[in-house]
Design a binder for these strands. Structure first.
Length: 887
RNA sequence: GCCCCUGUGGCGGAAUUGGUAGACGCGCUCGACUCAAAAUCGAGUUCUGCAAAGAGUGCUGGUUCGAGUCCGGCCAGGGGCACCA
């Protein structure tokens, strides 16, 4: 580059050279390796680990950038920071790849991991790679198998029959999310409801605790706590045992003498008109045996299944079993017992008493079968004699009516009265009523008919039943010689793998061929990171309890329930088997927004032909943004801003961005525009803006270097006006960034950095010939500027650090404290409002009281002009803030 | 249906938590440099208005000396749950 100007232009900053250089230096100097026995206070930063799909996407870049800023900042603040990375590496896509590309899942997965590791390293995340783990490593999942056995011993893992979505073509269980419009998402086959015996984790043992401890998770977003609260779904009610009329039961061929229901509205017991049970209820099954019509009805109910759409469409239907139940307060009063399609077997007892007047579903049902209704709760503003219910049930509060001894009571009092009486009432030697807390939460079914997962270490023996694999035989490893040329579970059709001898009796037995849900793998990896190479146990208790809970856990909101709830369950289960003393795994939780991008397309024969952003050119025509195709120049429609997805082609590849602008630019842009919890819109202009700033910092640092001395700052030195303003700007920025980084307000940190750069540029342009200590002020300002950008743009900071010759690495430098004395001005300018509108300014001494403030305000010419001689009615002086004159 | 969140310039957003609305960035306009472009630098950019001034944080009412912020009622957008007895 040639130059004719006085200043020697600085060569542009080249991230392609600088970034790999510093990444290598950090690694060589082991700056991010973290020791368990370090005496400094600990800080555990964790981002949700990725599935190794093959390439990282912008969502990953955002997620790990957010975590990296915190990790680097906390390191600078003197913490021993644990910031690890791993791979959630079991799961379906590897098997799909095997089926489609004839590549072994293991090979595919580890190749992806290698590629993605390289990508992550190119972005300069300060990760401790010594602790890397993949859940498909035998050294990881062997411990999971051990935990499974320990859980089983404690009753936390068990087998039971349950209904599942079964894909008859792929011959596997599908999760609810994998059933689209009643068909398997891969095969397109109509999904059947099957009753299969599956392995479950007893998450419901901790329902109460999982709910209660939500209150202690003050570092979690309110929204996530609320979602978990709803998911666990606690409700208080009463279990009520209804005696069955013997004669009618006998006629129906049923031996049962009673029917138990769960209710939260026992105050409406006198409004009962019928009873209803689920199609799978034992009573329905027993009665079906003697009644083919009823059996057919029950089959029909089962077929409708659990798909949401069916539920929405389905009409309330029932079938009278002929059985009659006796009212608990009046043996002469009998109620018909129906089998009904809207009763769920797995909530409560699978049976209800129907009170049509005060429950919409019951009312719909009663109206269809002409069962009538009795109003027993009357709204306060209604006359009990005239208040009736026809099509809309009344579910609100009110006075109890038409209910014998309950009349006149409130809903709450009536519930208490009913509970008290029925607790004392006896039937067959036990109380009729029992108070009961019921939860919506159900146990976690973990069996998957898949190959690429953690094998469940159990053996089925004809003589001994289900027998655990002896611990000495662990791990149960996946066989490698498997085929994917036909549907179904490769483990099941492997010629030898499943054939084993029973560990108890030695007879020929069958290995469990189901593997675990991949959510199991991710439910404890955060603990494993604390001691990832431990061979003798999943965790070392002391180490685990030292590091956990995770101080800040960062990831997407989509895991608000599943992963986060499962991890909370696992922590409790691990506590029961003595692995930890921990209450909760994650102290702080941050849910980041998505990376979204404009989508572009052209209409082509009734469908949208999407176009990659890189093939689109944006121009302004008459002040309007227009898009054109870079290839043929034709007009392109700008579609909405959406989540980056392959199908809409609105994706930007991190490698491309890092390749053309560098990692720091990508990181800076990710942090700059939107608050981290909101979606960020990825734009080419925004990236260029970030890149401009990278270059601007580079130039600025060189200009500062040219003006700065080598002397350290002496705060007592007599600074001139420029030096003082430089120092004030620098320390203000430092104080602001410190404050905002602690609260994860990175978009504001970015703004403060811009502010400081603007201020410094202004100061450099100021016509100063000589001013005492100005060189030291510039040196200090450069140091502060680099300190505050270092967590966000670590490579640039490092390169500039070297330009200035500051000591050591920027990445290892301690965080300086802002000089608070510089943040206070001697006199301040207060806005003056007159009747709430800003009209003037007044300059007052920093410590001016209300009286002095008022006097100075009333002396301001503008104020006097507006008041025009009239005395103000009131003057409110908020010291240091504002003055409001009421005229 | 129930529960929750969010509405601020052309755009992303800021506003010390009741105290100067629009920081900072993007975009746009004008100018300087250049043969030219890029890069860079300077000026401007909520709306109406030449200006003085006035209006302004989804709409509407209220509390307050003072409301983007608090309260009531609407409207719009987004999310979660849902035959849960």
């Amino acid at each position: 580059m040639s130059s004719t100007s006085e200043k020697t232009p600085v060569e542009r900053y080249n991230p392609k050279v600088a970034e790999p250089k510093w990444q290598e230096q950090w690694l060589l100097n082991r700056l991010f390796a973290c020791a368990n026995d370090d005496p400094r206070p600990k800080y555990y930063v964790l981002e949700m680990f990725p599935y190794p799909s093959g390439r990282i996407h912008m969502g990953h870049v955002r997620n790990y950038t957010l975590g990296d800023v915190v990790a680097r900042y906390k390191r600078a603040r003197g913490f021993n920071v644990l910031h690890p990375m791993g791979w959630d590496s079991f799961g379906m896509p590897a098997e799909n790849a095997a089926m489609e590309h004839k590549v072994h899942p293991k090979e595919w997965t580890y190749a992806n991991i290698a590629a993605m590791r390289k990508q992550l390293q190119s972005i300069g995340f300060s990760l401790d790679w010594d602790r890397e783990l993949a859940t498909c490593d035998v050294s990881y999942y062997r411990h999971q198998q051990k935990m499974f056995l320990d859980f089983a011993k404690k009753g936390l893992a068990y087998r039971k029959a349950s209904k599942v979505n079964w894909d008859p073509v792929d011959q596997t269980v599908l999760a609810n999310e994998q059933v689209i419009e009643g068909r398997g998402w891969r095969s397109g086959a109509v999904v059947e409801t099957r009753e299969l015996t599956q392995w479950f984790f007893k998450i419901t043992r901790f329902s109460e605790d999982l709910l209660e401890k939500l209150d202690s998770l003050t570092g979690w977003p309110e929204k996530v706590r609320l979602m978990q609260n709803n998911w666990i779904g606690r409700s208080e009610g009463l279990m009520v045992r209804f005696a069955l009329d013997g004669e009618s039961a006998k006629k129906a061929g049923v031996e049962a003498e009673e029917l138990t229901v769960f209710t939260t509205r026992h105050d409406t017991l006198f409004g009962a008109r019928f009873m209803a049970v689920a199609a799978d209820h034992p009573l329905a099954k027993a009665a079906s045996e003697h009644n083919p019509e009823l059996a057919a009805f029950c089959d029909e109910c089962r077929r409708v299944g659990t798909a949401q759409e069916n539920i929405d469409k389905a009409e309330k239907k029932g079938f009278d079993t002929g059985i009659r139940a006796r009212h608990p307060f009046d043996p002469e009063w009998t109620l018909p017992v129906y089998v009904a399609n809207f009763i769920l077997m797995d909530y409560g007892t699978g049976a209800i008493f129907g009170c049509p007047a005060h429950d919409q579903r019951d009312l719909d049902f009663a109206n269809k079968y002409n069962l009538g209704n009795t109003v027993v709760v009357c709204p306060e503003d209604q006359d009990p004699e005239t208040f009736i219910v026809t099509d809309t049930a009344y579910v609100g509060d009110g006075r109890i009516v038409h209910s014998r001894f309950l009349d006149g009571l409130s809903v709450a009092d009536a519930q208490e009265e009913v509970a008290k009486r029925l607790e004392k009432e006896e039937f067959n030697g036990a109380p009729v009523g029992t108070r009961r807390v019921n939860f919506r939460l159900r146990d976690w079914g973990i069996s998957r008919q898949r190959y690429w997962g953690c094998p469940i270490p159990m053996i089925h023996c004809e003589h001994c039943g289900v027998v655990p694999v002896p611990e000495t035989d662990l791990p149960v490893t996946l066989p490698e010689d498997v085929t994917f040329d036909q549907p179904g579970n490769p483990l099941d059709r492997h010629p030898t793998w499943k054939h084993v001898n029973c560990p108890q009796c030695g007879a020929k037995a069958r290995r469990e061929t189901d593997t675990m849900d991949t959510f199991v793998d991710s439910s404890w990896y955060f603990g494993r990171f604390t001691n990832p190479h431990l061979e003798t146990a999943p965790l070392d208790r002391a180490t685990c309890d030292h590091w956990l809970p995770v101080d800040i856990y960062i990831g997407g909101i989509e895991h608000a329930i599943l992963h986060l709830l499962y991890s909370r369950f696992f922590t409790r289960a691990m506590r029961e088997i003595g692995l930890t003393a921990l209450d909760e795994p994650f102290n702080g939780l941050f849910t980041q927004g998505m990376v979204v991008h404009e989508a572009y397309g052209r209409e082509a024969g009734g469908h949208w032909d999407y176009i990659l952003p890189e093939d689109v050119r944006i121009e302004f025509v008459d002040n309007e943004r227009k898009a054109f195709h870079r290839g043929d120049g034709g007009p392109v429609t700008i579609l909405g801003i959406e989540k980056m997805s392959k199908s809409k082609k609105n994706i930007v590849d991190p490698d491309e961005i890092v390749g053309s602008y560098g990692a720091d630019t990508a990181r800076w842009f990710m942090l700059s525009d939107s608050p981290p919890e909101r979606d960020v819109i990825w734009t080419e202009e925004g990236v260029q803006g970030a890149f401009r700033f990278v270059q601007r910092v580079w130039r600025l640092v060189h200009e500062l270097k040219a003006r700065a001395g080598n002397a350290e700052i002496n705060p007592q030195a007599p600074f001139g006006p420029v030096g003082l303003s430089v120092r004030k700007a620098a320390h203000k920025a430092l104080a602001n960034v410190t404050d905002d980084i602690e609260r994860l307000r990175f978009n504001r940190c970015v703004a403060h950095a811009y502010d400081l750069a603007n201020n410094l540029q202004e100061a450099l342009a100021a016509p100063v010939n000589s001013e005492a200590h100005l060189d030291a002020a510039f040196r200090e300002a450069a140091f502060i500027l680099l300190t505050i950008i270092a967590p966000m743009m670590p490579h640039l900071a490092e390169e500039c650090w070297e330009v200035f010759g500051f000591e050591g690495f920027a990445a290892a430098a301690p965080w300086p404290a802002a000089d608070r004395a510089l943040l206070q001005e001697d006199s301040i300018t207060l806005p003056v409002q007159i009747n709430g509108k800003k009209r003037a300014d007044v300059v007052v001494p920093r410590n001016a009281g209300a009286a002095e403030g008022e006097a100075l305000t009333l002396a301001v010419p503008d104020v006097q002009r507006i008041l025009a001689g009239r005395p103000p009615k009131n003057v409110i002086v908020v010291p240091g803030r504002i003055v409001n004159v009421v005229a």
